[in-house]
Simulated assay, not measured.
Amino acid sequence: MTAPRLLLCGFGSFPAAPLNPSAAVIATLAREAWAPPGAEVDYLTLPVQWQGAAETILRQVQDRPADGVLVVGVAVEAETFRVETQGRNCASRDRPDQAGRVWGSPLVADAGEEVIAATAPCQAMASALETEGLPVALSEDAGDYLCNFTLYRLLHAKAAPRVGFLHVPQARECAAAAAFDLAQIRQAVTAAAAAFCAELTRPVAEPHTA
């Protein structure tokens, strides 16, 4: 049996987070070629761009299909880790991306559903973080910036059988007042990714839309 493959992605810098802990952790794990037992992991760092982030992932999975895609992003003001349970068809029209561009529509996809449920094993991921002693919540609101935008685009495009998103708080190495350090961010990402990989051989439930 072929080992399941997870594509693990983090975001680069953007105006609110010149140093993004998701990119820092993903870069470290990629250098170490980290993967949970019995699984393969590919890595990407995404540009924080309305036209670029999702496209980078879609090109990757076209060339190298993945059984699951887990995107990690930073919620700068968050005090807990958040496993996003759905993508919403909404986008900010006045928040510029790292390239200074704004999205011209209040929708991610004009013909898309209002909400698409994440196909990742959200509860298993949250439970894995709880086991590590990290504060975690299941979230129904990934915001209106690139995190929600990318999650929704991937779900809408059915980029992989399972697609999910983990929001991490800012790290002390990036902002002195932050509650967590990069070691804890890494702990959360690897716990979530390992739980995700453990579920990749199980049948995926049909996502619901609203």
Rank of each mutant, 00 (worst) to 15 (best):
residue 70 L to T: 04
residue 1 M to R: 07
residue 192 A to I: 01
residue 72 V to T: 05
residue 178 A to F: 00
residue 22 S to N: 13
residue 26 I to A: 06
residue 142 A to R: 05
residue 15 P to I: 11
residue 67 D to V: 06
residue 187 Q to N: 09
residue 191 A to P: 04
residue 89 N to G: 07
residue 65 P to N: 12
residue 165 F to M: 04
residue 172 R to Y: 12
residue 182 L to C: 05
residue 202 R to A: 15
residue 150 T to P: 02
residue 175 A to E: 07
residue 22 S to P: 15
residue 189 V to Q: 01
residue 20 N to H: 12
residue 71 V to E: 01
residue 40 E to A: 15
residue 2 T to I: 04
residue 176 A to K: 15
residue 199 E to V: 03
residue 125 M to F: 04
residue 37 P to H: 14
residue 92 S to C: 12
residue 162 R to Y: 13
residue 124 A to W: 03
residue 8 L to A: 04
residue 180 F to N: 06
residue 104 G to T: 06
residue 2 T to P: 07
residue 145 Y to H: 06
residue 131 T to M: 08
residue 143 G to Q: 01
residue 82 R to K: 05
residue 60 Q to H: 11
residue 60 Q to S: 13
residue 185 I to M: 09
residue 150 T to H: 04
residue 56 T to V: 12
residue 149 F to G: 00
residue 64 R to T: 09
residue 18 P to L: 05
residue 176 A to Q: 15
residue 210 A to V: 12
residue 183 A to G: 10
residue 108 V to T: 10
residue 148 N to P: 09
residue 143 G to A: 02
residue 162 R to N: 11
residue 200 L to C: 09
residue 29 L to V: 02
residue 165 F to H: 01
residue 86 Q to D: 03
residue 120 A to P: 05
residue 184 Q to F: 02
residue 63 D to E: 11
residue 164 G to M: 12
residue 95 R to W: 10
residue 24 A to W: 03
residue 51 Q to E: 11
residue 81 F to C: 00
residue 199 E to N: 06
residue 17 A to D: 06
residue 184 Q to E: 13
residue 28 T to F: 00
residue 23 A to H: 01
residue 179 A to K: 12
residue 72 V to Q: 02
residue 161 P to T: 03
residue 93 R to Q: 15
residue 112 G to P: 10
residue 208 H to K: 15
residue 117 A to I: 08
residue 10 G to T: 01
residue 4 P to D: 12
residue 180 F to H: 11
residue 187 Q to Y: 02
residue 186 R to A: 09
residue 208 H to V: 14
residue 153 R to P: 07
residue 69 V to C: 14
residue 206 E to W: 10
residue 45 T to A: 11
residue 24 A to C: 14
residue 136 V to N: 01
residue 194 A to Q: 15
residue 113 E to L: 13
residue 69 V to D: 11
residue 100 G to E: 05
residue 56 T to R: 08
residue 65 P to S: 08
residue 125 M to D: 01
residue 28 T to D: 08
residue 177 A to P: 08
residue 107 L to G: 09
residue 152 Y to I: 05
residue 115 V to A: 15
residue 201 T to N: 04
residue 107 L to M: 09
residue 96 P to N: 14
residue 7 L to T: 02
residue 169 P to H: 03
residue 35 A to C: 12
residue 183 A to L: 14
residue 36 P to C: 14
residue 84 E to K: 13
residue 147 C to P: 11
residue 81 F to E: 01
residue 80 T to G: 02
residue 37 P to T: 13
residue 114 E to N: 14
residue 205 A to H: 04
residue 129 L to W: 08
residue 155 L to P: 14
residue 26 I to H: 06
residue 14 F to R: 01
residue 124 A to K: 11
residue 192 A to H: 00
residue 130 E to P: 07
residue 41 V to L: 03
residue 115 V to S: 12
residue 43 Y to R: 02
residue 16 A to N: 06
residue 126 A to M: 12
residue 138 L to R: 14
residue 52 G to P: 06
residue 204 V to E: 08
residue 61 V to D: 15
residue 130 E to F: 08
residue 209 T to H: 07
residue 48 V to I: 14
residue 94 D to S: 11
residue 83 V to D: 00
residue 105 S to H: 09
residue 25 V to W: 00
residue 75 A to N: 05
residue 158 K to S: 12
residue 160 A to P: 08
